[in-house]
Amino acid sequence: MDKQFNKKKYTGSVLCFGELLFRISLDAGGNWLKNNAVPFFMGGAELNVATALSLWDVPSQYFTALPDNHMSAQITVHLKSKDIDPSKIYHHGDRVGLYILTKGADLKNDSLIYDRAHSAFAELKPGMIDWDKVLDGVSWFHFSAICPAINQHVADVCKEALIAASAKGITISIDLNYRSKLWQYGKTPVQVIPELVQYCDLVMGNIWAAEIMLGIPVEEGLHAVGQKAKYLDAALQTSKHITEKHPKCKAVANTFRFDNNEGITYYTSLYTGGEYHSTIDHAALKIINKVGSGDCFMAGLIYGFYNSHEPAEILEFATLAAFDKLFIDADATSKTVEEIKTTTITK
């Protein structure tokens, strides 16, 4: 494993590639029906990462597909207002995807309803995009496992992008976020994701996502034991497995978030340069919003590696950013680097 991954110098932008989505946030009591109004947010995993990075003074570009209409023009203006470069967005198709989520619920439960079929992004196909042009001036390419979960064509587009980025020597990261409701086109994640991870320098996820997407088994009964030391050891073994199976991978990060009647506990780990780091527990009795915490962690990792910070410092900042995001109602963080560094670990 390359011990100097965190010392690589970056001068270009971080390009985040993924589907822009609208989130409709319903209240659990159904008052939205009485009030005839619902909170409405613009996000998407990769846009959440780009938003955080731009806020933290990392040059950020966002690449997605949108219809060529007035609404998309307004979205472009909004992205520019956040110092995110939207100039490479591909315009075609007829609609923007959306999803409906009950406030406070998790993206993995039954409170989630997707409405993103036949969106502009879902209609992408190989050969449409001039990747040489899109990747011009880019030092880092980020995407998530949500993209290849949409359909085979988008999975093929992802591979097309990774081949082009690798040829240019661009650093590549992936978030192994698993959305079971999206894998509906006849392929399982383990049939698709390993082929994409082989191009990645940084892999982020958790041990259960690695089991589903990369076929790395989690010890039976591990969750029943519920011991932090056991979880961290499992993450270390998973991390070693990933880097041995995929030699291009130089860093693997894992998150652990546990919800129970006593609140929420959150901690993370990072394996890079042959060294393993983990954080103390971060705890809260009550949170506001689970959406985007993982995206904020991913952004924190990219921020740290982009700025050549030490691995322990990278992990600590990314963890604080992700934990703090649990108390922000929007999809992306609104906190500066300085504000995040003063976050308390118990709320």
Rank of each mutant, 00 (worst) to 15 (best):
N151T: 02
C158N: 12
D331L: 01
N109F: 08
A321I: 02
A229T: 07
K325I: 00
Q152M: 08
A164D: 00
L53S: 01
A52K: 01
V337I: 12
G97A: 12
K125V: 07
Y185C: 00
I216D: 00
K248R: 09
E275T: 14
E211M: 12
T344C: 12
P148C: 10
Y10F: 14
I287D: 10
Q227V: 11
A37W: 13
L135T: 05
T342Q: 10
P189A: 04
A332D: 01
D201T: 07
V14A: 04
S144R: 08
K133D: 10
D156K: 10
A37T: 15
L98D: 04
P194Q: 03
N254A: 08
A318R: 00
L101A: 00
F40W: 03
D281W: 06
F41R: 07
V38E: 00
L182A: 08
Y271P: 09
L79K: 05
S308K: 13
N254I: 03
T238V: 14
G127D: 11
E219K: 14
S239K: 09
T265Q: 10
V192N: 04
G221E: 00
A167N: 15
V203H: 10
K341N: 08
L20G: 05
T342S: 01
D106S: 04
L320A: 02
E313K: 14
S111N: 15
L55G: 08
G215D: 12
P194V: 03
D2W: 03
F121S: 04
H92K: 15
P247G: 13
S72H: 01
G274W: 06
S25P: 05
H118R: 07
M204P: 09
D85L: 07
T238C: 15
R95F: 07
T346N: 15
N6S: 13
D201N: 13
E262Q: 07
D136T: 15
T319N: 01
I212E: 15
S334L: 10
T188I: 14
K228D: 14
K181Y: 10
A28D: 13
A45Y: 06
N109C: 11
S60T: 07
S269K: 00
Y90G: 05
E310G: 13
V96N: 04
L135H: 01
V252I: 09
G274H: 09
Q61A: 04
L222T: 09
S54T: 06
K286Q: 12
N177D: 03
L112N: 07
L20H: 03
K125M: 11
D106L: 13
G221C: 01
S293E: 01
T255F: 11
H223A: 15
A321W: 00
D324K: 05
Y99V: 06
W140V: 09
Y99P: 11
G104T: 10
D175Y: 08
A283R: 12
L285P: 08
R257Y: 04
L107Q: 08
T265R: 12
T343C: 06
V197A: 04
